[in-house]
Amino acid sequence: MSLDKRHSPFVYTDEQLIARFQAGDEQAYVELVNRYRDRLMNFVFQFLGDTEQSEDVVQDTMLKLYEKKHYYREIAKFSTWIYTIARNLANTELRKRKRRKVTVLSQMTRDEREYELPAVQPETGQEVESQYAAKRIQIAIHALPEHFKTVIILRDIQELSYEDISSIVGVPLGTVKSRINRARLQLQADLKDLR
């Protein structure tokens, strides 16, 4: 099995690829990894806020895909299945982190955050400004309640459909729509000063 980064044209759907992998074609696995590694990295990073830990979680997700390939059934979309695995692993990592009582920015109180932020606030430069904005958005996302956080990341950052999000988080479509709307309202309130 070679895990090169060739970008072959996507002739197979995800579901066809996983079926081929289940039949023993390891190249299909490599193709799935190449398709999803950055998407999942971006998804997990919004939860953990740490690049190395996020990459470890994505690695674990891909390893689970390899080991548990026969658990996938075609009744669900492959994307929702792999996102569910990544989300569960990210949540496990968050629980471990809470147990270790590691203080991260997202866990600080509002006062602590306001105290910390000026240190990274840029004086000049468009790039630094955008980095600052990204950091602020990340903090605002982290501050959201858990059930808002997942759906807003999946919808507005990962750009998944409402139906897929409903499958991933396992709640009805109407609830997903309502949660996303509420999360957007809360975020716009938190990020008012960025505009």
């Binding site: 099995m1 895990l3 090169d4 980064k5 490599v30 990894v33 190449n34 590694r37 950055d38 990295m41 971006n42 990073f45 690049t51 996020s54 990459e55 994505v58 690695q59 891909m62 390893l63 955008s130 980095q131 904005a133 990204a134 958005i137 990340q138 807003i152 507005d156 950052i157 750009e159 957007r184 309202l185 975020l187 716009q188 990020l191 008012k192 960025l194 505009r195």
Partner: peptide, 26 residues
């Protein structure tokens, strides 16, 4: 404001895996 927030989220800087990701996985 809500529209603007949605745009900000969509344009958030994308994080990518490291170059050695596949090698490590292998």
């Amino acid at each position: 404001h809500v529209h603007s927030t949605m745009d900000q989220l969509r344009n958030i800087q994308q994080v990518k895996v490291s170059d050695r990701f596949n090698e490590r996985l292998m």
